[in-house]
Design a protein around this nucleic acid. Sequence first.
DNA 1: AATAAAAAAGATAAAAATTGTCTTTTTAGA
DNA 2: TCTAAAAAGACAATTTTTATCTTTTTTATT
Lengths: 134, 134
Amino acid sequence: MMELTRKGEYAIRGIVYLATQPEDKVCLLSDIASAVEVPATFLAKIFQQFSKIGLVKSYRGTGGGFVLGRSADKITLLEVVEAVEGAIIPNRCVVNPGECSRDISCKVHPVWKRVQEQVRDVLERVTLEDLAGV
Amino acid sequence: MMELTRKGEYAIRGIVYLATQPEDKVCLLSDIASAVEVPATFLAKIFQQFSKIGLVKSYRGTGGGFVLGRSADKITLLEVVEAVEGAIIPNRCVVNPGECSRDISCKVHPVWKRVQEQVRDVLERVTLEDLAGV
DNA sequence: AATAAAAAAGATAAAAATTGTCTTTTTAGA
DNA sequence: TCTAAAAAGACAATTTTTATCTTTTTTATT
């Protein structure tokens, strides 16, 4: 339960690698993929998602590639994880009020809310700088 | 991400319902299932898992059914969830040391460990009595 | 002892999510 | 114009989830 998927694992590996590179260096997807041992086509999809929300900046065409969208200390692990896995929602009824009509759900509701907050809190305190650092 | 499955949701509903019943009342699976609106055959599998680890006691044959294995205040939500969803493992490398050979994983490792602890902590503090109470 | 009620166990299957791959398109530099 | 690279979209294999159905075992009751 609560397991990060491959996609999430790959996403972290890929963007942390980017964070270890010199800030101005434009990295090829193919290089990142082989460095972190992730299928390049799959990582491409992941970086497209990153790009859409500005976590990375992409350059197309010759000499293109990826750089971080912001400095590593301004990107949290929470953002990275949520970018590819979606929001952290331990239970449907946490986000969907109509979902829990029955009494029992309502008692459980605040517990999952607390779980959600705790997890988000932990992930939010960690930045790519922390993960990339020596 | 981190979403409880239907199985987990059903499991909680079912055992919380049992906790709302008089302690000595032997409840039919079919009654529990219809009360909490869960497919009876699916709930049967869930209760078999509960039974194996003593979370519930089962009686077979005529007049059979289920009762809680312990008093409701001695059963935590963590036990219930882990009984059907397995251990709370946010990342493979948290449990499998060989998994994370690469440097980056090792930096991420303690973060997931912390997530795991936080989640377990929240769920462990909640008992079936809390959830069944008025 | 026979019968009926109930859970246990096992086999199977549909649906959904995950984990990819492949091809075509767009963009930009040389 | 040609080539390098990411973007986008279609497709497919695998795994997990979400069940259902049948048979077996156990137990109480008649």
